[in-house]
Design a protein around this nucleic acid. Sequence first.
DNA 1: TGTCATGCAGCATTTAATTCTGTTTATGAG
DNA 2: CTCATAAACAGAATTAAATGCTGCATGACA
Lengths: 159, 159
Amino acid sequence: MTTSTRTRVLDRIDLAILDVLQKNGRISNVNLAKEVNLSPSPCLDRVKKLESEGYIEGYSARLNSAKLGQALVAHVEITLKSSTEAVFSVFREHIVKIPQVVSCDMVAGGFDYLVTIRVADMVQYREVLGKIVETPGVSTNHTYMVIEHIKIDSGLTVL
Amino acid sequence: MTTSTRTRVLDRIDLAILDVLQKNGRISNVNLAKEVNLSPSPCLDRVKKLESEGYIEGYSARLNSAKLGQALVAHVEITLKSSTEAVFSVFREHIVKIPQVVSCDMVAGGFDYLVTIRVADMVQYREVLGKIVETPGVSTNHTYMVIEHIKIDSGLTVL
DNA sequence: TGTCATGCAGCATTTAATTCTGTTTATGAG
DNA sequence: CTCATAAACAGAATTAAATGCTGCATGACA
């Protein structure tokens, strides 16, 4: 059993807590308690439990990437030279060390990995792409530059 | 000038605050102040300012999607029947209403949109894909199922 | 029906957030 | 070079929240 296994049934109040905290991670416990119709102490107990059980992995400030000079996003499809675990392993180790890599998924289909990167400009894009393609085992790559973000919503539909 | 325009130069302390809050969005102001070597009051002033100026867009709890029964992620490439603004507009309006759509980017290259969806299982995948391909103007689609998440890190490299 | 476990509210204590005041520091004008 | 001004800071005081504790209510189960 891994940590990702659902270990108990969350009730309506737990789900409401998750929903509120997902939308407003910095709400005070007093106000969170009001939102879910509970007094502060059992509310805090539940939050602590959801944290310790791994339903809540942490809290983050959402930063405005454009204002911070990281406006360029690109999706890069990567194909490796062979589909052996050794090659995958090397690729994984290299890719996670590149800070501009936002996400990297192994996929089933016409290529092996879909890598999303966020950079300041084309100069930096070239640098990062260079790092990626120089990774041992990489065969081919194809970039799709993002022209417009229609939706970014990492929130889960919890209710 | 849009809200995404950088309107002032952030100093080292501001960037440090953003970096800390991105990693730990629920840290107390007292501890945040210690992290960035400031006393609580000017630290709080800076955080409020970063929020009101839009550098910080909000705070979120990071939820464990697997434990919450949303373990299946797929990337779907969408091509529209024509590249007119009218068709794009209809597509955008439909896609943002589907809660399982995590992100949707218009891209430059071989197709028009890259849509990422998160669902509980294959049954739900079919439902969501159905909604997407029934959107007026959609011509072709191709799905890449995610086999393994190597990295998910929406964090910006701020320092 | 009695006992136990669970979850809750309310209160008390500790800790943090917030506001206010005075001081330092950087900046620019005379 | 000196004074005026504004910005940013530290520290104290006040307000609010987090946290821990106690007892009550509810439901499960023997």
